[in-house]
Design a binder for these strands. Structure first.
Lengths: 215, 215
DNA sequence: CGTCATACATACATGCATGTATTTTGTGTG
DNA sequence: CACACAAAATACATGCATGTATGTATGACG
């Protein structure tokens, strides 16, 4: 069966592709290695040759997709910007523009969000996602902390509430987008949403302090 | 072993409590009925007496928590309001105020969001959640459609983008709140966030149409 | 006081996923 | 051409969760 080295690599990729597809369709816990092997046109033997077990395979699949947030959010670059709000705004828009073009990223992110329980064996595997999220959260908070210290963050926002709101908005946007299977246009919805938020961060919104904005 | 009717009911409740706790800790797929029985101080026999199987138990647990969104979002009431934006805004704030007081709701919602794969057997069980979500989404969209037809929805918003943005914001807020284990104050973050959004819906925001708000 | 249905516990059969051991097949190499 | 080894298939042992069948004690009821 040993064709050649490149052939073995193609087998490995085929297994990863199959894992992605079956995980996406059935969920991680409900998927057996036999199903993945069958989808890849192999047997379990091939999987156990290339990977230690399901967890190892899952991680390999995850690593291959290299979630691209990091690329856009170099916090040092953002902190170096003259207008941190504008820089963060632009970086976020870049992300909104990039996301729909990244098919594998969408699929893997969907698996991580909706097809995988955040506990048990997978806890360790999801640790890097959690870490990347909380890291991202902490780093953006630094941006808002700086904006606050420079007096650019309007009342009633604080660095904490503003960063939480920003994170919730972006995360909610992506989550809803993936959940509805791209049922709406990410930019068309996201851009005005972010503009409204950042506008408020800057203090441009009217009628703050009242329960509801003016009618 | 048959103590009495009330005793049997208490057993049933104990099983549901145990299921809630173990599902929360271990995830749904990774949890076995033996573990639930042990946590309830019973054997699997008791579970199979009260419930058909794991799916039935899961649904019973879900039903018991009666996710309270419906209560706050009677769309007919909202549509009947003079100012639909104000009505929706207030209803959402009510939800933000209520959520932290509902311990069981928080736990069950966390299970539904993070401890349960959205596929396979559970697909049917999650159907009502999905339905309730998409239903909620559709109903709020009706509100925005009406606002749009009355000319109250400012450019560049459309009924579609506005309702998506609203939904993404609320969902993102709750999700982030649950994920960070109530790591921030829901009202303190949510209220300014919603004000910013609704303010923009009403057309109060400056510098729309540019890529970034003014510095 | 005996009988019956309820409310469980226990025992058992089945299937299936995992992990590992063994075998087969092809491939480059001296 | 024989040989060693990589790549994968096959075979096997184990454990475990499920569902169901059976057992059993207890309260209700005549």
């Amino acid at each position: 069966m040993r064709r050649t080295k490149e052939c073995a690599d193609r087998t490995r990729e085929a297994i990863l592709d199959a894992a992605e597809a079956v995980f996406f369709r059935q969920g991680v816990a409900a998927t057996t290695l036999s199903q993945i092997a069958e989808a890849a046109g192999m047997t379990r033997g091939a999987i156990y040759w290339h990977f230690q077990n399901k967890l190892d395979l899952f991680r390999a699949m995850q690593d291959r997709a290299h979630l691209p947030k990091e690329r856009f959010f170099d916090v040092d670059r953002l902190l170096a910007a003259e207008d941190v709000f504008a820089a963060l705004f632009e970086a976020t828009l870049e992300l909104l523009r990039f996301a729909p073009t990244d098919g594998r990223g969408k699929r893997v992110y969907t698996i991580l969000l909706f097809r995988c329980e955040y506990v048990g064996e997978m806890q360790e595997a999801l640790a890097c996602l959690r870490e990347s999220e909380s890291d991202f959260c902490a780093r953006t908070e630094r941006i808002f902390v700086r904006a606050e210290s420079e007096g650019r963050l309007a009342s009633p926002w604080t660095a904490k509430t503003a960063s939480s709101a920003y994170f919730a908005a972006v995360q909610g946007l992506f989550t809803h987008w993936l959940k509805t299977d791209e049922g709406f246009d990410l930019m068309a919805t996201g851009q005005p949403m972010l503009e409204a938020l950042f506008s408020s961060f800057r203090g441009a919104g009217p009628a703050r302090g009242r329960a509801a904005p003016d009618a």
